[in-house]
């Protein structure tokens, strides 16, 4: 479990490194910001999901609002 979590984190960070490096080199700052935001969000969700936090499920939301 801990090993898997470590692996997940390693993978996420590896993705971050691989993706940000060219963006920094090309000085594409808006893209970098967008990437970092999305990456942070998705990584947070992924880790939370992995650890077992109950995340809100949008499907339930749809089920509720629709007749």
């Amino acid at each position: 479990m801990i090993i898997l979590l470590a692996l997940l984190l390693a993978a996420l960070f590896l993705i971050a490194i691989v993706e940000t490096a060219p963006l920094v080199r090309q000085k594409h700052w808006p893209e970098l910001a967008a990437f970092l935001f999305l990456w942070g969000l998705s990584s947070f969700l992924a880790v939370a999901q992995f650890v077992g936090v109950n995340l809100p499920n949008s499907m339930r939301f749809f089920e509720k609002i629709l007749p």
Partner: peptide, 15 residues
């Protein structure tokens, strides 16, 4: 309004 879509692909994949 980004100049390339590649940076968002990986995060969206994770999502």
């Amino acid at each position: 309004g980004l100049r390339q879509y590649r940076p968002v692909v990986f995060p969206l994949g994770i999502l």
